[in-house]
């Protein structure tokens, strides 16, 4: 399947960038003319993954987060969020709803939200080597604004 558009962003692990990441992904997907619900779903999932990188991956410390997004010609959108932080020891346990290693103000619902708001979620992680979250969603194209350039 052809890639119609792709982008990669790198930013610091600062909590103000949670908003930046959501805004950037929204702007990138806008030519697909997503519904309000589709856009809210993707923004929420991105916010969860970026927040996790900041508070769990880098434990509020300095680090770099990479956000990549690809739009395929069949409306498939793939978003990848990667940190080089501390990694996850037990991914299966981490993904269980309400599980949090932090507790307190954390609801333990980040992965549950990513799972239910996106069509697909994959997590790879290595202890000490960082975490990569890959999410997919089909956004059926209503506009033709993202046609490949040759078709103009």
């Amino acid at each position: 399947m052809d890639i119609l558009n792709e982008m990669t962003l790198t930013f610091s692990s600062k909590s103000m960038n949670e908003n930046f990441a959501r805004a950037a992904v929204s702007a990138f997907l806008l030519p697909l003319d997503p519904t309000i619900t589709e856009l809210a779903d993707v923004k929420t999932a991105v916010s969860e993954a970026v927040t996790n990188a900041i508070i769990h991956g880098y434990e509020y410390g300095e680090g770099t987060i990479t956000l990549g997004a690809k739009i395929y010609s069949n409306g498939r959108v793939v978003i990848r969020i990667r940190d080089k932080g501390k990694g996850i020891e037990d991914i299966k346990q981490a993904m269980e709803p309400l599980f949090s290693t932090v507790g307190g103000e954390r609801a333990g619902l980040g992965f549950a939200v990513m799972q239910s708001f996106m069509d697909d979620l994959r997590v790879t992680s290595r202890k000490g080597g960082g975490t990569t979250v890959t999410m997919e969603k089909y956004i059926i194209r209503r506009s033709r604004a993202v046609q490949s350039d040759e078709n103009d």
Binding site: R22, A40, K43, T44, S47, E48, T51, G104, E105, R106, A107, L109, G110, A112, V113
Partner: peptide, 13 residues
């Protein structure tokens, strides 16, 4: 206008 699971944590807390 927007809320993620941090908002749920806020309510729960």
């Amino acid at each position: 206008r927007f809320m993620d699971s941090s908002g749920i944590g806020l309510i729960m807390g």
